[in-house]
Each structure stands twice: as C-alpha cells, then as structure tokens.
C-alpha cells in the first residue's frame, strides 16, 4: 500500500511527502493575551491534517492564521513564521490578498453569498482575473464538490434556497473554484446533520488527491475517520502532533490519551 508507505516515510522524517505549510514557533496574541503559544508543525501535501482539542484551545485561531484571516481581528499580533512554499506568509512583502487566494477556507456555518448558485462560484475567479470558460469552471467546481447533479438545473436560482448541507458543499465548491493549494476547514460539519456530514467527509477523501486539507473539528470520531495527521491542542499549546492512528491508539502523552478516550473536553 503506497498510502501506508508514504505515511511511514513521513513519520520517519525523510520528507518523501513535501510540506506545504511549515509552521515555525507561531504564537497568536489577542491584545497581548496568547491564544496560540509557540506552535511548530508541518502540514504535508495531499494529506488531511486534523486539529482537535477542547473549546477555546486555540485551534480555530491557529487555522485562521494559516491564511491570514486573523488580520481582520482588532488587536491581533502574530509571532513566528509560517512558510508556504518557502515564503513566510507574514513577511512584509507578502500581500495577504494573495495568500487568501492560494489558501482557501470553508467556515463553520455555511455562508453562501445571497446570490445565485452560479454567481457564488464565479465571483471569486472573476475578481481574480480568471479568463477561461466560466461555465466550465462552475461545472468543474460543483462536480468536485459533489453538488453538480443536484443543482445543474437551477444554477441561476438563489443559493439560499439550498439545504444546509448543500450550502456547505457550495461553499467548498466556491473555495475550489479558486484552485487553491491548501483548503482550510473550520468545523465544516458542526452545523450539519449526520447525512450531510457523511457527504462532506466522503468529499474530503476525494479532494485529498488534489488538495492539501487542514480541518479543525470538535468531533474526535471525525478526526479519526478522515485525517492522516492529527494535532492535539490544549490552552494554546500544541500538546501532540503525529499520525492519526498513533494519536488515537498509542498517544505518547498522557493528556492526549485522556482527551481522545473522552476523559475530558
């Protein structure tokens, strides 16, 4: 199994799988108070990395620092480096708009634009100067997000008429239309029912071959089911980071074991 091999090699640190994001000693402070403390880890290409931990542990904050969405929070300061293809995302010559164009995001609550399904997909590529066939791009993105069959006959209806699960897949399609290198997902299933959740999880498996995914989740079963790597955070610290199998079956740190076995959190 090539899958197992690559996992093993990654674990041995031989870098058979290149890192897309290299988080180096990152701290995020809100008005001087640290929400993320000295976190270092690598996000590997074409892998799903899950960030788990109790509420308020800083996992969403860490995720949002990966595409500079924290910039919009008043009084935020970020220390350390995040290397994205060898370029520090926070160096002064990097335009955050360019970062967000390459590193897409799906939010906790589905947030489609109050526009048609078609326009939801086409707006992002449009403003970024996409000059291929927009119809093809819309179809391709919706197909990748496993939504095309359900909406192909009503592309020009409002996106707000879709169900919650469909809206979330539309948001994924919207992010994919930008052809990002990394897709960040902030608890994408927490507002969805189990069937829609299963849809999205299946989708993530499909997307793995083309994209690198980082997902924050409250749901430990979800992390165990879908991710290749898991980061466990508590009170702003990265307690343990490793292959998902190892984190859930043979964690090195007591605190991780207590969390994944449901003794707190």
């Amino acid at each position: 199994m090539s899958m197992t091999e690559s996992r093993t090699t990654a674990n041995q640190g031989k870098n058979a799988v290149p890192a897309v994001l290299d988080i180096r000693d990152v701290s995020v402070l809100y008005s001087g108070k640290a929400a993320v403390k000295n976190v270092s880890c690598k996000i590997l290409k074409n892998r799903i990395t899950a960030i788990i931990g109790p509420s308020g542990c800083g996992k969403s904050t860490l995720l949002r620092s990966l595409n500079r969405m924290n910039d919009f929070v008043d009084g935020v300061t970020i220390e350390g480096e995040i290397l994205f293809t060898d370029q520090n995302l926070y160096s002064s010559d990097v335009d955050p708009v360019e970062v967000r164009r390459r590193i897409g995001m799906v939010f906790q609550k589905p947030n489609p634009f109050p526009k048609s399904i078609y326009n939801n997909i086409s707006w992002g590529p449009g403003i970024n100067g996409y000059n291929g066939s927009m119809d093809e791009l819309v179809e391709r993105s919706l197909t990748q997000a496993a939504l095309w069959e359900e909406v192909k006959d009503r592309l020009h209806e409002s996106a707000l008429n879709l169900s919650g699960g469909q809206q979330q897949r539309l948001c994924i399609a919207r992010a994919l239309a930008m052809e990002p290198q990394v897709l960040l997902m902030d608890e994408p299933c927490s507002a969805l029912d189990p069937i829609s959740t299963a849809h999205i999880e299946d989708l993530m498996f499909e997307l793995k071959s083309r994209y690198t995914i980082v997902i924050v989740t409250h749901n430990m079963q979800q992390a165990a089911r879908i991710s290749d790597f898991t980061a466990f955070m508590e009170m702003g610290n990265l307690i343990e980071f490793g292959e998902t199998d190892q984190i859930f079956t043979r964690p090195n740190i007591k605190r991780t074991e207590e969390y994944v076995t449901g003794r707190f959190g």
Partner: peptide, 11 residues
C-alpha cells in the same frame, strides 16, 4: 460571515 467569505476568496 459574508465579508469573511469574500475575503477568503482573495478579494
């Protein structure tokens, strides 16, 4: 959330 959606698309 609408603003974040747009900004996350590189707007």
């Amino acid at each position: 959330s609408i603003r974040y959606a747009a900004l996350s698309l590189g707007a």
